[in-house]
């Protein structure tokens, strides 16, 4: 407290105390002492209230900082890598489907064509059951071929969902760099490791994200066999 304020606050009451003391007025002296005491108590209470508020603020800020540290250090990079993995998996799945369509389409075409040609070599007055069968084969193979075209076009989902995911991926990258800066400003070290327990379910394994995952079923079989099951 500044000296001037301190002196002005107590000057009046000290003069009165001095006066009561000199006059031998004990009752007045006691009242004035009581006044002094309650004034001190009030300022103490105010001080404690301020202190506890600051403490609460500091605690809240600390929690926020550690949340930012966890988001910036682990959760956001984790989300980014998962998204990259989804982009890669859908692209691979679409290409694999296209590979199989490219292999199957000529087979269906050849079957339809051969069934037609073979039917044409048969005498139209006989073999009605075989001619009927060949007609069915041709129709089915043509339908399969047409469906393969539809399956092929449906793979366009990878482009459409991919564009949306690319947009979200960009946003996550921006959030990541902002959080990194925030964490640096707050001086809280980034938490690079997940707080999840190792056995908490976390969905499909993501390369670069999932720690200690098996690579394939034969790894699983080996592990299980090693455990005596």
């Amino acid at each position: 407290m500044p000296v001037a304020k301190f002196m002005s606050r107590y000057r009046g009451v000290l003069a009165k105390l001095n006066h009561a003391y000199a006059a031998g007025d004990e009752a007045a002296f006691d009242d004035l002492l009581g006044e002094l005491n309650s004034a001190r108590e009030l300022s103490l209470r105010t001080g404690i209230a301020k202190l506890s508020q600051s403490l609460a603020d500091a605690l809240a800020r600390f929690q926020l900082d550690s949340r930012i540290a966890s988001l910036a250090g682990h959760e956001i990079p984790d989300a980014r890598m998962r998204l990259d993995h989804v982009l890669k998996m859908t692209e691979e799945a679409a290409h694999k489907t296209l590979d199989l369509i490219e292999q199957a389409a000529p087979l269906a075409e050849a079957t339809a064509r051969d069934a037609r040609l073979l039917g044409e070599t048969l005498d139209s007055r006989s073999h009605s059951d075989i001619r009927h069968f060949l007609g069915e084969v041709q129709g089915s193979a043509e339908k399969v071929r047409a469906n393969l075209t539809e399956v092929m076009l449906a793979q366009g989902f990878q482009d459409l969902t991919g564009q949306i995911l690319h947009g979200i991926r960009k946003l996550i990258g921006e959030v990541e760099s902002v959080l990194d800066e925030l964490a640096q400003v707050s001086g809280v070290p980034l938490e690079r490791v997940a707080k999840l327990n190792a056995t908490d379910p976390a969905g499909p394994a993501v390369p670069g994200v999932t720690v200690n995952a098996v690579a394939n079923q034969s790894d699983v079989d080996d592990l299980i066999a090693g455990l005596g099951i």
Binding site: E91, M152, L153, G156, Q158, D159
Partner: peptide, 18 residues
């Protein structure tokens, strides 16, 4: 012209079919 290789392949296959 497409940045997605799947879409290029789809259109290319479709043009082949035509």
């Amino acid at each position: 012209v497409d940045d997605f290789s799947t879409m290029r392949r789809i259109i290319k296959n479709f043009l082949n079919d035509l």
